[in-house]
Computed example of a mutant assay.
Amino acid sequence: MFQNTKLLLRIALFGAFGVSAFGIMTEYLIQNNVRNSMCYKEALKYLCDHPEAKRQLGPPIVDGRINLGDTVGNSSEGNKIWYTVPVRGQKSHGKMMYYVTDVNESDRKFKVTRVELELNHIKDKKLLIKNAELA
């Protein structure tokens, strides 16, 4: 009887470890896929090249980890997808929000249409970095 309990405990322990490792690995792979995408790199380049963003954040501008559990900051509607990325510099920190539009559904080509910066020290205001909808 005692051997059965030990066996069940081992199964539960290894099962919990396996599920945890799978969850951590899945989140890492999703983060990596988003960060290696051309749209992510393009949005970050727009932010780093913008003079007011550089002045407010202070160089160098560093990106953080995307909170994949944030369903408001990272979501989609129709053919638009948006992500919120924490960014920081020497002077301040904030959140970069970038919007991606599916230009051609057949070959899954995406285009960055809007990039915004929300600074933590300036509440209720956003710095518009790029807006292709107005251009």
Rank of each mutant, 00 (worst) to 15 (best):
L8H: 03
N67K: 11
A12L: 13
P59D: 11
L119Y: 00
L57H: 06
Y98M: 05
R65V: 12
K111Q: 07
F17P: 01
I129V: 12
E116D: 15
E105R: 00
E27R: 13
L44R: 12
I122G: 05
Q90D: 14
K111W: 01
A53L: 06
K95W: 07
K91F: 06
R65I: 13
K41I: 13
F2A: 09
K45W: 02
R88G: 10
I122S: 05
I122C: 00
A135N: 15
V87H: 08
L7T: 15
D70L: 03
A12N: 05
K45F: 06
V62C: 04
E42L: 14
V112S: 10
K123H: 12
I61E: 01
Y99S: 07
G89V: 01
V100S: 00
M25K: 11
F17K: 01
L8F: 09
F2C: 03
S75D: 02
A132S: 15
C48P: 00
S92V: 03
Y28N: 10
H121G: 00
S106I: 02
G89I: 02
S92R: 06
R108M: 09
P59R: 10
L9S: 02
M25G: 12
G94S: 05
L117Y: 04
R114Q: 14
G73R: 08
P86A: 11
L119W: 01
N79P: 01
L127Y: 08
V85Q: 03
A53I: 06
G78R: 11
T5L: 14
D70N: 08
Q56N: 07
G58M: 04
D102Q: 02
G58C: 08
Y98D: 07
T84M: 08
V34M: 06
R108E: 13
K6N: 12
E116T: 13
T26Q: 03
Y83V: 14
D124Y: 03
